[in-house]
Design a protein around this nucleic acid. Structure first.
Lengths: 328, 328
DNA sequence: GCTATTGACGAAATCGATTTCTTAGACTTC
DNA sequence: GAAGTCTAAGAAATCGATTTCGTCAATAGC
């Protein structure tokens, strides 16, 4: 790796001039040429570490997400990466496993690595952003919110829950159950409230046993669906408040040999790799990639010095029309 | 952010001593205490950028993969991340989209960021590792290989193809087709050769029309399966050489109302979010996470200075037993 | 008791860029 | 023509750690 000094020596100028050439300062055309020739001959690439030490900031942003294996978050990551790349930034992807300790460790790394900013989907309400915020590094919360004063991008979860439930009503179902996430988690809570609102307004009121709280994952949805099917008067349709639980619910239906032609399933989220006929499941598409892209844009604006008041952007989810083929 | 100088001033020692305390050099117990107290009071964290500039290397490794949204690669990434974290390394995840230009850009970034090493799944045979290798940075190829002299971790693809096909034979199918990837791509090529070997040995020879080349993706598998079903004598089973094409093939079967009880499907790869009964599809589990973990281990050994001869580790895929439930 | 060895630790160099001074020359302006 | 801008570009400081070198004192060895 050639340094700026070797380039300067070869070009017969000072290191300062070389730096100026690569940072768009005023340098005479003649020396510009000399420097560029020398740089090309030596295959010079500026040492980012030295630059970062001097400038006290880098072109790297940290993305902290709970689960890199969940397609929702990979799509989100993809959006962040695309946007970051357009501005010449790189993204460090950190998996928190929803573990506040891991999250904190990554936040410390972000600070001591002089990363330009952080996008995170907080593992808990108690995430400690104090250190990084007081350092003046911009932070954007994505998908979930935090009590700290930072920009945020989220989804209109209640509207998503409403849309999912309405779609089932419109398809003629009347005994609509809900498999919700753990109680107290903002995201799925809002989605489940959307379900309750629609069921109260359009249906025969909320049937006690039709609401199931489960963990976020496939096994949770599976167990909940089995329980619903075992009821004296089982539902004829179900809304699940995330993608993984829907997989589990569908699996339970297949096992119980309940044909999807007669049982309605709506998901808040997408089922990205689904071999079933897409018309058989209502998917409320969460704009995960867009979420990431928007978060990255906001972060980059802050990095560039934008000082406008705090913003929270709420994106609206879209119901897939029946028969629309998402994954192809 | 407190610096080493402020800590030194507060503790009444020289900056060198502070550095020594945090790098395990010989420092008297008394000064150790002074320094640690001062550091704690100032919430001192060493500036990684300064350290990196001085040491000419960082604790960051780059992971270049073609598609972050493919579950195979996210599992791989997960393995890399887990292993890296154990050694205090961070992972920068870079999406190449199988685009040699993007790949090259990321390799340059890895070099100029003083990253400790690179794990990559090369977009093409022509990937230019010359620059990074000549810099002395270790590189490990994962899942795919390169002509450059670097360590590699791959899967025994032929054995995987053989295992998938044998499983269908064992289940009683005799007209076994194959949906392979694009011709000339080493990975799926080997898997398809495994299929051919088994079909030749155990079956009635290779039926011309039973081999379909498709692109890697869902739509490719879908189209290929439709074509197979339209044959005069359609197959009674199919092997697909990757996960996404299997999704497409299954979708085509569902659309054509072919019950999976009568039509065998085997995949080289896993179908991570599948609502179908797992017993209905033979999955040859690719140890993606392990692949990542192994690659990270090898890279970390090289980073630590290991100079043993080049290694290629070949991992064996495992056939899921029918009924074994993978995703729950 | 006097020289060698060892160990703790401070002073200063170093990593490779950016940036602030400074200076020398060119160009206005009255 | 003298004084007052600009402008290009070099010298040197700076970012914050690590590391070499050298010093001084304490211990060991004879």
């Amino acid at each position: 790796m050639a340094t700026i000094y070797e380039v300067a020596a070869l070009a017969g100028v000072s290191p300062a001039t070389v730096s100026r050439v690569f940072n768009g300062q005023t340098v005479s055309a003649e020396k510009q040429r000399l420097v560029r020739d020398a740089a090309a001959r030596l295959a010079f690439t500026p040492n980012k570490t030295a630059r970062r030490l001097r400038k006290q900031s880098s072109e790297i942003i940290a993305l902290l997400i709970p689960d890199i294996e969940n397609p929702f978050f990979t799509a989100l990551a993809r959006g962040v990466e695309d946007r970051a790349q357009e501005s010449g930034f790189s993204v460090v992807l950190c998996n928190t496993d929803d573990d506040p300790a891991k999250e904190l460790r990554y936040l410390e790394i972000a600070a001591s690595e002089q990363m330009a900013g952080v996008i995170l989907s907080p593992a808990s309400d108690e995430v400690d952003l104090g250190a990084i915020v007081s350092l003046g590094r911009p932070v954007v919360a994505v998908d979930r919110t935090t009590p700290y004063p930072v920009d945020a991008v989220k989804i209109d979860n209640r509207a998503a829950g409403i849309a999912a439930t309405n779609a089932l009503f419109d398809a003629g179902y009347r005994r609509i159950a809900c498999i919700a996430g753990p109680a107290g988690i903002e995201n799925t809570e809002d989605r489940f409230l959307g379900w309750r609102q629609v069921v109260s307004a359009r249906g025969a009121g909320v049937h006690e046993g039709y609401l199931r709280h489960a963990n976020f994952r496939v096994d949770g949805g599976h167990a909940a669906m089995r329980a619903l099917l075992a009821l004296g008067t089982p539902p004829d349709a179900v809304v699940t408040t995330n993608n993984l639980m829907a997989i589990g619910a569908l699996r339970a239906l297949v096992e119980a040999r309940v044909p999807l032609e007669t049982f309605g399933v709506a998901v808040v989220g997408e089922l990205p790799f689904m071999p079933l006929d897409p018309a058989s499941v209502v998917q409320v598409r969460l704009p995960a990639r867009h979420l990431g892209r928007t978060a990255a844009s906001m972060l980059l604006e802050r990095i560039a010095g934008d000082a406008q008041p705090l913003r929270t952007v709420v994106l609206r989810a879209e119901v897939s029309r029946p028969g629309e083929d998402l994954a192809l």
